[in-house]
Amino acid sequence: MFYPNSPQTSPQLTQIPYGQQYAMMQRQIQQPYHPFATTEPQARLYPYHYQGPIQQEQGGFITQQSTAASPQYVQMRVTPVDQSIMSGYPNQTANGSSSSSFNYNIHPQQQQQQQQQQQQLRHHAMPVGSVPLQDDRYRKQLIVNYLAPDVTSTDLHELFSRFGELDGARIIYDKQTNMSKGYGFVYFCHAEDAKEAVERMSGYEFHGKWLKVGYSTNPLNIVPSNSSPYVHAGSRGAAG
């Protein structure tokens, strides 16, 4: 039997160049792979992502010199942007860049009308829970959420009447099932009393439920100042 490094198959040491006398086997001759043993700084910083320098080929596509990437890492192929796409944008300079302001050559009167329309939209648009300043009635009506099913309009009136005089209180019921929808409205005579009720009743436990109280901004629920107070009856038909 002959071994790869046996004296019968191995040459004389004098015939082997210096430095390879003890590297006779194939696994010894093959050098191990060192990912950080390279002179390129990109490979030292990113050993798993770097795959060699990027070269520009004919046709405008950018390719990489090395083989496919590892399945664990996804390499994105980048193509140059066609400058003709950006030619339609206004205020574009000769080098292809555009300024931040756009001039669509709008007539001054049209621009003024658009600004007025935007101001009107901001004036009428009102986020949930906010209180408008032009109508004091919005500051007097509250919406009470997360009410228990057994709470009546009379219970709601008695709960909030300790903060001040009320114009009314009612629970909203479903017309088909005649069941409470879980929320109601309270109408105060003074805005200061309503503000105190919002601050003190939010998070209050009532009939096993934690109440959420806020201003009601729905104009359909506003009680006119010259109208008669609501009837605080315990029956659902009268309260709904």
Results as ranks from 00 to 15, higher is better:
123 H>K: 09
6 S>F: 11
211 L>C: 07
121 L>M: 11
15 Q>N: 06
216 S>I: 09
12 Q>H: 03
53 P>C: 08
210 W>Y: 03
191 A>Y: 00
214 G>S: 07
179 M>W: 11
193 D>Y: 08
97 S>Y: 04
24 M>K: 00
182 G>M: 14
126 M>T: 08
232 H>P: 12
187 Y>N: 11
77 R>Y: 12
193 D>H: 02
59 G>R: 05
125 A>R: 14
147 L>K: 00
23 A>S: 12
7 P>I: 09
148 A>F: 00
106 I>H: 04
101 S>T: 06
17 P>I: 14
17 P>C: 15
67 T>W: 10
75 Q>E: 01
234 G>H: 10
210 W>D: 01
187 Y>C: 03
57 E>A: 03
2 F>I: 12
238 A>L: 07
201 M>D: 06
233 A>W: 00
13 L>M: 08
196 E>P: 08
233 A>N: 09
17 P>R: 08
38 T>K: 00
166 L>W: 14
148 A>N: 08
112 Q>R: 08
177 T>G: 03
177 T>K: 09
89 Y>E: 06
91 N>T: 07
81 V>I: 08
107 H>T: 08
186 V>H: 07
152 T>I: 07
225 S>R: 10
161 S>W: 08
43 A>H: 01
99 S>H: 02
28 Q>M: 15
123 H>W: 13
112 Q>V: 08
83 Q>W: 12
149 P>G: 09
226 N>P: 12
230 Y>H: 08
92 Q>P: 11
222 I>N: 07
93 T>D: 09
86 M>E: 00
178 N>R: 03
162 R>T: 12
240 G>P: 03
130 S>W: 00
208 G>N: 14
113 Q>A: 13
24 M>Q: 07
231 V>Q: 00
91 N>V: 12
236 R>W: 11
111 Q>K: 06
3 Y>E: 02
58 Q>D: 08
88 G>V: 05
222 I>G: 00
155 D>H: 02
183 Y>I: 15
158 E>S: 08
229 P>L: 12
152 T>S: 04
123 H>C: 09
87 S>K: 05
61 F>Q: 03
100 S>Q: 12
50 Y>A: 15
217 T>H: 06
170 R>L: 06
194 A>R: 05
82 D>A: 14
66 S>Q: 10
64 Q>D: 01
147 L>T: 05
235 S>T: 04
149 P>R: 05
72 Q>R: 05
96 G>D: 05
54 I>L: 06
181 K>N: 08
147 L>Y: 00
133 L>H: 00
231 V>W: 15
237 G>T: 06
89 Y>Q: 02
64 Q>W: 10
102 F>W: 12
149 P>N: 10
46 Y>L: 03
47 P>C: 11
43 A>F: 08
201 M>V: 07
57 E>V: 10
101 S>V: 13
127 P>L: 12
6 S>R: 06
225 S>I: 10
22 Y>T: 04
167 D>N: 08
108 P>M: 00
197 A>W: 15
30 Q>S: 03
116 Q>C: 03
46 Y>R: 06
212 K>R: 08
53 P>W: 15
14 T>G: 11
207 H>S: 04
173 Y>F: 09
209 K>A: 05
223 V>S: 09
2 F>Y: 13
57 E>R: 05
192 E>Y: 14
228 S>F: 12
100 S>L: 04
49 H>W: 09
168 G>P: 11
30 Q>G: 14
122 R>H: 15
17 P>Y: 13
85 I>H: 01
67 T>K: 09
109 Q>E: 15
101 S>M: 00
66 S>H: 13
111 Q>M: 15
190 H>G: 06
192 E>R: 01
190 H>W: 14
27 R>G: 09
67 T>F: 15
174 D>S: 06
179 M>V: 05
149 P>W: 09
19 G>Q: 08
58 Q>C: 02
80 P>H: 08
142 L>H: 04
121 L>I: 01
7 P>A: 11
146 Y>S: 09
222 I>M: 03
127 P>K: 00
18 Y>R: 11
77 R>E: 01
86 M>V: 08
83 Q>M: 15
175 K>I: 03
156 L>R: 10
239 A>I: 11
